[in-house]
Simulated assay, not measured.
Amino acid sequence: MKMSTVSKFKSRISLLLCPFLLISGLISGCNREKIAPKPVLPALNDVSLVSENRYSCTFDSIKHDFIVDLPDNAENAPLVLMLHGYGHNAESFRTSVQFEKTANPAGYAVVYVTGASDPEDRTSSLGWNAGAGTGKNRDTEFLTALAKYLQKEYSLDSSRTYAAGFSNGAFMTHRLAAEAGDTFSAVVSVAGIMTDSVWETRKSGNKVSFFQITGAKDDVVPKNSDGTAKHSKYPAVEDVMAYWAESNGAELTVETEVSSQAVLKKYENKDKNIQVWDLLVKNGGHEWPKEKFSGFNTNALILEFFEAQK
Results as ranks from 00 to 15, higher is better:
residue 149 Y to G: 08
residue 56 S to K: 13
residue 97 V to E: 15
residue 14 S to N: 07
residue 64 H to L: 07
residue 26 L to Y: 04
residue 194 M to Y: 04
residue 191 A to K: 07
residue 120 E to F: 05
residue 19 P to L: 06
residue 229 A to C: 08
residue 53 N to T: 13
residue 62 I to P: 01
residue 197 S to R: 14
residue 133 G to K: 06
residue 274 I to E: 05
residue 55 Y to S: 11
residue 220 V to T: 09
residue 105 P to Y: 01
residue 1 M to F: 03
residue 152 K to C: 07
residue 218 D to Q: 03
residue 120 E to V: 06
residue 114 T to N: 01
residue 306 F to Y: 15
residue 267 Y to R: 02
residue 310 K to H: 15
residue 181 G to L: 05
residue 39 P to Q: 09
residue 174 H to C: 10
residue 272 K to R: 08
residue 45 N to I: 00
residue 202 R to M: 06
residue 273 N to Q: 10
residue 259 S to T: 10
residue 2 K to V: 03
residue 276 V to E: 08
residue 68 V to L: 13
residue 35 I to Q: 11
residue 18 C to E: 01
residue 90 A to P: 03
residue 197 S to Y: 06
residue 280 L to G: 01
residue 47 V to T: 11
residue 61 S to N: 15
residue 204 S to I: 08
residue 256 T to N: 10
residue 98 Q to A: 13
residue 29 G to D: 00
residue 201 T to S: 14
residue 54 R to S: 14
residue 14 S to P: 00
residue 273 N to V: 06
residue 50 V to D: 09
residue 77 A to F: 07
residue 104 N to Q: 12
residue 175 R to S: 09
residue 246 E to Y: 01
residue 280 L to R: 07
residue 271 D to R: 04
residue 28 S to G: 13
residue 258 V to Y: 02
residue 296 F to R: 08
residue 20 F to T: 07
residue 36 A to K: 12
residue 15 L to D: 10
residue 308 A to H: 08
residue 32 R to P: 00
residue 232 S to I: 07
residue 256 T to W: 04
residue 85 G to L: 01
residue 210 F to K: 02
residue 47 V to W: 00
residue 27 I to R: 00
residue 81 L to A: 11
residue 130 A to G: 15
residue 55 Y to M: 08
residue 164 A to S: 15
residue 182 D to E: 15
residue 35 I to M: 05
residue 97 V to I: 15
residue 105 P to N: 03
residue 293 F to W: 06
residue 168 N to R: 05
residue 2 K to S: 05
residue 220 V to E: 05
residue 277 W to N: 03
residue 299 N to I: 05
residue 259 S to D: 12
residue 222 P to G: 05
residue 230 K to W: 00
residue 207 K to W: 00
residue 5 T to Q: 10
residue 252 L to P: 02
residue 57 C to A: 12
residue 273 N to F: 00
residue 235 P to L: 11
residue 103 A to E: 12
residue 29 G to T: 03
residue 262 A to F: 07
